[in-house]
Nucleic acid binder design. Sequence first.
DNA 1: AACTTCACTTGACATAGGTCAATTTTATTT
DNA 2: AAATAAAATTGACCTATGTCAAGTGAAGTT
Lengths: 195, 195
Amino acid sequence: MTTPEENKLIYYVKKWVNITKDDESAILSAFEQASIRKKKDLLVPGEICKYNYFIIKGCIRTYYIDDKGVEHIYHIRFDNNWVGDLESFFSQKPSKYYIEALEDTQYIRISKDRLDQLYDEVPAFDRYFRILFQKAYVNTLKRLNANMWEPAIDRYKDMLKEHPDMFQRVPLTYIASYLGITPESLSRIRKKNNQ
Amino acid sequence: MTTPEENKLIYYVKKWVNITKDDESAILSAFEQASIRKKKDLLVPGEICKYNYFIIKGCIRTYYIDDKGVEHIYHIRFDNNWVGDLESFFSQKPSKYYIEALEDTQYIRISKDRLDQLYDEVPAFDRYFRILFQKAYVNTLKRLNANMWEPAIDRYKDMLKEHPDMFQRVPLTYIASYLGITPESLSRIRKKNNQ
DNA sequence: AACTTCACTTGACATAGGTCAATTTTATTT
DNA sequence: AAATAAAATTGACCTATGTCAAGTGAAGTT
C-alpha cells in the first residue's frame, strides 16, 4: 500500500515527532505522488501555489524575475526537502515566483485543504511543521546574517563545505544568484580560491 | 487572576487559533511576568537562553558582536512581539547573542520545559507557534531578498513606511545596523531622501 | 549649569562587487 | 560529427557602500 517514496516522508516526520500507525496512514493518504521533467515549472507567477511539495528525488529551484528582467533565486533544494511558495500557499493568493525542476524530479504533494484537514486529524503533524518552520526560520536568519555581514567568498566557501553536491548538480550561474552575487563575481571568487 | 498584561498574549493567540477557557488558563499559568530596565540585558553571549519572551510593553533588540568588535543587530521589537534566541532556547546550548532592553520593558516569559509541557497540554498552542514561525520565516525571506537585491535607500524607505515608530523610539545607529549599513551611510541616505 | 558621553553628520578616500562586452569552454540538438 | 546554444571566464571600467577621521549637536549625569 505505502510505496517506498511515501515512506521517505514518514521517515523524516518520525525524526521529529511521535506518530501512531493510524497517523502514518492518515498522513500518507493525504499526499499524491507525481513527477516533473527537467526545466518544467511546478508554479509560474500569477498562479496560486495550490500544493506544498516534498521532493523524493531530484532538484527544484524557486526564483522570481525583477523589473529589469533579472532572475533572483531564493532556494535550490534536493531530495527530502519541502518546496513551495508558502505565502501563496497559505493565503491562496497569486504567487510572484517560479518553481522549476532543475532535474527530472519525483515528488509528493499536498493541497492546502488537505493539509488543514491533516493538521486537525493528526496534531503531531502540526507539531512537525512547527518544528520545520522553526528550523527554517533560524536557518534563514543565518543566511540573512551571512549576506549582510560576510564577504561573498566566505559564503562561497561555506557552501563548498556544507553543500559540495550543489556544485555537481547545479550550474554556477544559479549558485551565484543564490549566494547573492553575479556569475562574473562567482567566477572571480573561484579563481582566487583555487590559487 | 489574569492580569491585563497576560491577556494581551491570549488576545494575540486567539487571532490565529481557537482555544477553550481551559486552554486559556493553562496558557496563562505557564507564563511568569517580569520587567527589565533600559540598557539591561535579558541574555548575554555564553548563557543559555532559558526563556522565550513576549513583550507586553517596551522595546528589545537582539544583536551579536563580531570578531572585529562590531555590533550586528538582528531584531528590534516592540510591544506584543516575541523575542529570544530560538536556537539556544530550543537546543539549550550557549547563545552567541545579546538580548537588550532599549526601553524600560514589561514582558512575560516561558521556560523551555514549561513550553514543551504546554504544547502537550494545549495542542492549539503548537499550532499557534506553527503559524507564528511560518510567518516569521516568510518575513525573514523577504528581508533576505531586500538585503540581497534592493539598494539601502529602498530598505530605508520601506522602514519609514512600515515602521515609522522605529524612528521615534530607536537611535539611528541601531536602525542602520538592522538595515545592514553603517550609521554614516544611513546619514547620507537620509540627507539625500530629504532633498 | 557644567561636564561627559553618546548620537549624528560630513568629507576624503578605499574597496567589494556590479556592469558591459568579448572570448572560450561545455553541453545539447540535429 | 557538426552546428547551435548555453555556461563560464576574463578584462576594463563603474558605483554603492565602507572606512577613518574630524567636527557638531543632543542627552544624561553630577
